[in-house]
């Protein structure tokens, strides 16, 4: 996931905590080998390379994540889109990408990707289609982590992917919940109470270089507003998808989008830009 992963576990023996953390890290590494678009040994990299040119084999696991992405596309009116990898790749290098890069144009994902479930094969139906799980990968990983924690009967945990994707179980050792707040000191009064929850924080500007990285497909341009969205939900993937969609969509669509998900709370803030 190319970011730091911190795992805090309490309420069990040291050995049990170590075993749980190891299992989580191991599963995330396996997931990475499926959904990483930059690693030439990962399945998504291979699919992006080959599926433009004809049908290619796809694993059941990756098929599941693609179908999940298609569902999220529909659920968010297209504001969440796993098929525009080339655009995201170009944004990594330039906040003003070439006008030639517009991404695939479609209303329904079936217009751009054909999946043969029985044979375990797929192909892209349009030029410019490129899978990118960057907006959901950490959510998928945290949902997997939640399953492991349940299986191993871990009562209390706090897991963070670089501060932007968080999963909690149980409570803080010295309080009834995990008190979550923001690095941005203008949001100091915000304290969200987390128990068995997932949090996702998305912003239009990312990293030290303040790169733009969320694309408005309807206007074919990156989102430039200084806004940040935070979503609290039970499902980490839902939280990831919705927080991204809230950045990509205009304000008047926010209420509608949030009604499409089972969430506990959400908020959109002005993003503080460090220059």
């Amino acid at each position: 996931m190319n970011t730091s992963l911190d795992i805090i576990i309490h309420g069990v023996s040291h050995e049990c905590a170590e075993a749980s953390a190891s299992a989580i890290v191991s599963e995330i590494k396996k997931l990475q080998m499926v959904i990483d678009r930059y690693n030439s040994e990962a399945e998504t990299y291979r699919i992006n390379r080959d599926a433009q040119h004809g049908t290619t084999a796809v694993s059941p696991l990756l098929t599941k994540y693609i179908l999940q992405g298609m569902d999220y596309f529909r659920q968010t009116e297209g504001y969440f889109n796993i098929f525009g990898g080339e655009i995201y790749a170009s944004l990594k290098h330039n906040n003003n990408p070439s006008p030639k890069i517009v991404g695939p144009r479609f209303r329904h994902p079936e217009e751009i990707i054909e999946i043969n479930h029985n044979e375990g094969r797929l192909r892209f139906l349009q030029k410019g289609v490129s899978l990118d799980f960057g907006g959901i990968g950490k959510g998928i990983a945290l949902d997997m982590a939640a399953e492991i924690l349940n299986q191993m009967e871990i009562p209390h945990a706090f897991i963070s992917f670089g501060g932007s994707s968080i999963l909690t179980r149980g409570r803080h050792p010295h309080g009834p919940y995990w008190p979550f707040s923001f690095q941005d000191n203008t949001l100091d009064a915000e304290v969200w109470k987390l128990n068995n929850d997932a949090i996702s924080v998305s912003a239009a500007h990312s990293g030290r270089a303040q790169k733009l990285h969320i694309w408005n497909y309807q206007q074919s341009q990156p989102i430039r507003q200084n806004i940040m969205a935070c979503v609290q939900a039970e499902c980490a993937a839902d939280a990831e998808v919705l927080s991204t969609s809230l950045i990509a969509a205009p304000l008047d669509r926010h209420q509608h989008l949030t009604q499409q998900f089972h969430i506990k709370q959400w908020k959109v803030f002005k993003q503080k830009i460090n220059r």
């Binding site: 309490h10 501060g163 968080i166 010295h174 912003a203």
Partner: peptide, 19 residues
């Protein structure tokens, strides 16, 4: 946790795409 405090954790921030 080590000091026995129950304080908010200022951790939330954005990092959406792989950095």
């Amino acid at each position: 946790i080590e000091s026995g405090f129950f304080e908010k954790v200022n951790i939330g921030g954005a990092s959406w795409i792989p950095e």
